[in-house]
Nucleic acid binder design. Structure first.
Length: 271
DNA sequence: AGCACTGTTTACAT
DNA sequence: TATGTAAACAGTGC
């Protein structure tokens, strides 16, 4: 489901709800969600306090008092914070019971989401986080040359390259379309034809669009409610994705498959 | 009924 | 190594 702004929205809402609480028990109903040995996962987490919730790219990170849970929601993962025994359905696969009588339920219709436990010293120095590239919201200084070199090294279409989380982190199918539209770059362009000025533009627009979307609590389309029942509002700001007409030149937008993903763009404005 | 589609990532084949 | 395809899974819509 979520891209960077949606994960950030989840992080912010959950931060208000569960920081300071202790995890007193864990129920794992579908073990493939957890990448660790189940006992290892449980033993390292039970009786630990949630001291902070952070994020890198599309990864949500629960910082415990002695380690971390890294959680990726993939397509449909959602968290619900509710009193014990007030919510249940067949798509809830992991339940964290908290010290105040509430539970944090992980619901995932398609079961694509994953969680893994990492000790502090391994958090950013091992997969998956070691492979996460520039986060447009978190990173303070941009190494534009590095990003340019990584993009310029590839011959595949620029949209596919921007979905590669090891270069710029957080872009998914919706926001890639929005960023490329804002930059007037055709998503079919070969990555090695993208200029340094265009890379600068991609970075600038990613930051601007992500910030604006986060202010609006992300995008809610198709998945009735977003995570946590928070309804995002950024779908009202989308300029190309799901649209029929170019807001700039009024021509009919193209809708192609790129890398298997539906891609919206304007063939006259985006070169 | 059957197929296409879905805000993601990765294992595998070439 | 780089790139393209299929698979992980379940639901919705035509």
């Amino acid at each position: 489901m979520p891209e960077l702004p949606e994960v950030e929205t989840v992080r912010r809402v959950l931060s208000e709800q569960i920081i300071g609480l202790k995890i007193v028990n864990i129920e794992i109903r579908y073990s493939s969600i957890v990448e660790d040995d189940i006992d290892y996962f449980k033993n390292n987490i039970i009786n630990k306090e949630i001291i902070n919730i952070s994020r890198l790219g599309k990864f949500l990170i629960f910082n415990l008092d002695n380690g971390n849970i890294i959680s990726h929601l993939r397509m449909e993962g959602k968290y619900f914070y509710v009193p014990n025994n007030t919510l249940d359905n067949k798509h809830i696969h992991v339940i964290f019971y908290l010290s105040n009588g509430y539970m944090l339920c992980y619901q995932d219709v398609r079961k694509f989401g994953r969680m893994v436990y990492k000790k502090n010293d391994a958090l950013y120095t091992t997969p998956p986080l070691i492979n996460v590239g520039f986060d447009p919201i978190i990173s303070q200084n941009v190494n534009t040359d590095d990003i340019y070199n990584k993009i310029n090294n590839k011959k595949i279409e620029i949209k596919t390259t921007l979905l590669d989380q090891s270069i710029i982190a957080g872009l998914g199918n919706i926001y890639v379309d929005e960023v490329l539209y804002a930059c007037r770059i055709n998503p079919h362009r070969a990555s090695n034809t993208i200029t340094i000025d265009e890379v600068n533009s991609i970075i600038t627009e990613s930051i601007r669009i992500f910030k604006l979307s986060i202010e609006n609590k992300g995008t809610t389309i198709r998945s009735y409610t977003s995570s946590l029942n928070v309804i995002g509002n950024y779908q009202n700001f989308l300029l190309v994705h799901t649209k029929n007409e170019c807001s700039h030149c009024k021509s009919v937008l193209k809708r192609d498959k790129i890398n298997g993903r539906t891609t919206y763009y304007c063939n006259s404005c985006q070169r």
